[in-house]
Design a protein around this nucleic acid. Structure first.
Lengths: 349, 349
DNA sequence: GAGAACTGCGAGAACGTTCTCGCATTTCCT
DNA sequence: AGGAAATGCGAGAACGTTCTCGCAGTTCTC
């Protein structure tokens, strides 16, 4: 028992295939009576249109590809995924998702597969800014692309990022205002890098922005003692790095972390060393989560407008799909420092 | 400038389209020389196969549909999504994702769209067990389906669920062993239900299992005072319900919550009322998250094998795709109670 | 009332693959 | 050496749509 096609509908309604198609898709010249008859016939034989055949003919699939990092310890990408899926559906598009786990080879393969599946466009969180031949392939296939969260210089794509520089700078201001003079920055780096490197190449623009924001804040505020610690984004190694930091001779009074993984490492290590946040060490991180506000004290955080970012990504991508000559844009969304209780006010001596 | 097709490859290699196809897909009778020549030609003109056309001809899309609840406060579904996407990719399938937000109408539409896109099978988290005509449609389209997390009686599908009954029962045992005699269960219900209902119909089997597990534990352990509180899955209303509970005349010494949203509501409310967990009120919840272990004290939790569940869902679905006469299975995975510090040991009087 | 415009519909091509047939040509077997 | 089997390849159909074109038949226009 085959699935009914439009030919079966046409036969059941006693019209030609062309007429059946016109009736079902509401186009062309056709009488109201015929439309009703065809729709009734379609209903009665349980016809559902085949979108693959339609795509074949139409040259578009009403599907967009999403190449992202499904890291569920970081709610940012999960929220972005939800936002993109929901916005796309509301605009008549479905989403094919690929997770790269921050791995360039996987990203390459994912993009290739999505292009073969003829997606109408791609939203990508590029795992690195250093290499982009695979991203160029997208443009060469005449498909539009929007990158989110991170910037890749030299590619032909609209980018949507957040202004992490500004809010990280603001976080340093706040710490300075509370008399912190010894600050540390715990920066997650891609695990592919050797932990021995003095200052690893930061593989993505977002982390770089945060670091630069911190640095600028430090210089602006004439902070005496500031250090940067680079740790692989791996729980055990991150905890080791934190422990080393907190048990040093002159430990920092505040730690900034570049993401929630690192913040968790700080919290775990503080617990293990019987240190209290914020009384023994203060903490600031990036990307808000429900739990950061539910614990006591709440964790001060740089909040990023992820829903807006997701919505815009889909909106801009669809604009590019509908207008192939539209110029790429570079959109930077504002961020916001949410002060909770994790920065202690140190008494001035 | 059109995208090169297999005809262009054939022309460039000086062979027929059929031969080019054979060469590129490694099938049929063909000489090694020709294969090499065709592959070189394909490479040189930058040919990428069109999977839509291939699907058209082959009758399969190598794509599966995922209909799920993208609730990012609950890490369970995000982890499941990642697991499914990764396992599918490793098995040569891509995933089309739809988020239902627990809404039946959206779920209906999502399934219809995915069927039109000719997915080879579906993995569904059904939002309700009460209605399933839209799920039956899947079988009538001759596509296999695997439901995860929740059971829908009377449908033709393999189901993969977790044994929440057992671990929730175990959680009550543990509370009883620590001398808790006044327990409360905070149960999230779908927001469509009226909060006035004495005992709302539990719309899904998982929550029902948890409640039954708790009940059984209560009966088994002859717990004196046990109450059930049903709250819409909405932050404000949940917090109100918790406040009412904790400020009553004879407040519970321990609260079980049916998910992490509810646990967050308990934590927020406890903070607001200046109550300490676990000294003033103990807490147990379901579904582990990184942060539940990073705060002090850690929250005791019923852990569910989400990665295994995701892996199995894809594996079973692909088995059904490859063998249409395979019988549906009913798989129940074990859960595990992780004891941390959120249940206080009460001194026996 | 006669040519022009319009209306409703069918025939057939096209989208890019894969796969079945059949036809030469070569290789094998006795 | 001569038929049988095997090999390599091309022609053409098929998957299920949509859309262009053209052809009748009807309605409009002055």
């Amino acid at each position: 028992m085959r699935k009914p096609t439009i030919n079966d509908v046409a036969a059941a309604a006693g019209v030609s295939r062309a007429t059946a198609s016109r009736a079902l898709s509401d186009y062309g010249r056709i009488s109201a009576d015929t439309v009703a008859a065809v729709k009734a016939a379609a209903e009665s034989i349980g016809y559902t249109p085949n979108q693959v055949a339609r795509s074949m003919r139409a040259g578009n699939t009403k599907t967009i590809g999403l190449v992202i990092i499904a890291d569920f310890t970081n709610v940012f990408f999960d929220r972005a995924t939800k936002g993109i899926v929901d916005t796309a559906r509301a605009s008549g598009y479905e989403v094919l998702i690929s997770n790269t786990d921050e791995n360039l080879a996987v990203e390459r393969e994912a993009i290739q597969t999505l292009l073969e599946k003829q997606v109408d466009g791609l939203i990508v969180v590029p795992s690195t800014a250093a290499v982009h031949d695979h991203l160029d392939l997208i443009a060469r296939n005449n498909k539009p692309m929007v990158t989110i969260d991170r910037l890749v210089p030299g590619i032909n794509a609209t980018s949507i990022t957040t202004n992490d520089f500004e809010s990280c700078e603001k976080a340093v201001h706040e710490a300075k205002a509370k008399n912190h003079k010894n600050m540390a920055f715990l920066i997650a780096t891609s695990t592919v890098q050797s932990p021995q490197a003095e200052k690893p190449i930061l593989q993505n623009s977002t982390i770089e922005d945060r670091v630069n924001g911190f640095m600028n804040g430090v210089i602006d505020n004439k902070v005496k003692d500031a250090k940067w610690v680079y740790s692989p984004d791996n729980p055990q190694q991150a905890e080791d790095a934190v422990a080393k930091l907190l048990t040093a001779k002159n430990p920092p009074t505040i730690i900034f972390t570049s993401n929630n993984d690192m913040a968790l490492a700080v919290m775990r290590t503080a617990n293990r060393l019987k240190l209290n946040i914020p009384n023994d060490v203060s903490l600031v991180t990036v990307d808000d989560s429900q739990w950061l506000d539910a614990i006591a004290p709440g964790i001060t955080v740089v909040e990023r407008p992820v829903d807006e970012l997701a919505r815009l990504a889909v909106k801009k991508l669809i604009e590019h799909i509908n207008n192939k000559s539209k110029k790429p844009e570079k959109i930077v969304l504002p961020t916001n420092l949410i002060s909770r209780g994790s920065i202690k006010a140190i008494k001035a001596k």
